[in-house]
Amino acid sequence: MGRNKGFDKAQVLEKAMEVFWTQGYHATSIQSLVDHLGVNRASLYATFDCKELLFQQAFELYQQQNVDQLPTILVKHEDVVEGFRSLFSMVIDDIITDPQHKGCFVVNVTTELSNADEVIRGLLQENASKVEAHFTTYIERGKQNGSVTSTVPAATLAHLILTYFNGLRVVGKTAEEAMPLRAGLEAFLGILRS
């Protein structure tokens, strides 16, 4: 009979996600994970095998939590411009209220690891594809109901919006005020009605 590890794997993954998100992959040691997660080293290795696999599972958890909620946020707004305004307003609020200025986990991972790890690159590409698919579907709905009047193809607009999202998260890591971010958002949203 196997020994009970005595911890909830889901809770540990949630905490690990926060540690990696705040510190980054390379700056997070096994010892810092042990300290933050409250799990001994042997149990950590027995459950997750190595730091890299723990990181991958924590990253996948972040993706699930964030990508899966996108349609729920957007579908509340029939007007697609209002839907994106609401989504990005939430992002700006998060940027300004986060005392650690840790940014978006996906964007942080992209800048730190995308060129160093094939598995992570694959996860990042999968994440981008899912987000763009959600955005494309939503924009197509806007073209049908008239809230999006741009003649640019929906998939191209979706890619541009994802690029803006990533850029906003990078700029947001040093932002102190919401007003310039909100002004930029309003200018950017004009692409959907141009």
Rank of each mutant, 00 (worst) to 15 (best):
M90N: 13
D8W: 02
S86H: 15
M1N: 11
V91L: 14
V34H: 03
D117L: 05
N4F: 03
H101F: 04
E186M: 10
I161P: 00
A58S: 15
D94V: 02
L123W: 03
F135W: 06
E126T: 11
V148I: 10
T174W: 05
N145C: 08
S32F: 00
L189H: 09
E52W: 05
V19C: 04
S86I: 01
A155C: 04
D8C: 07
L185M: 10
A46P: 04
T22H: 10
A175F: 11
T28I: 00
E112F: 12
L123Y: 12
I161L: 15
H159E: 10
E60N: 08
R121L: 13
I161G: 00
Y25K: 08
K173D: 02
V170A: 12
V34Q: 06
I139A: 00
K51N: 03
I120T: 15
K76A: 15
L87M: 14
A158G: 05
T149E: 02
A133K: 00
Q56G: 02
F20S: 08
D94E: 15
N66I: 00
S114R: 15
D8S: 09
H159K: 14
S147W: 06
K9L: 07
S32V: 07
L160G: 01
Y62H: 14
L13G: 07
N115Y: 10
I120L: 10
V119Y: 13
F135E: 02
H77R: 08
E52V: 03
R182I: 08
Q69T: 15
V148C: 02
N127V: 01
K130C: 00
Q63C: 13
A183V: 14
G172Q: 08
A154V: 04
N127T: 11
F135R: 07
G83W: 08
L185W: 08
T47D: 09
K76D: 14
K15Y: 02
K51F: 04
R193D: 03
I95D: 07
V81F: 02
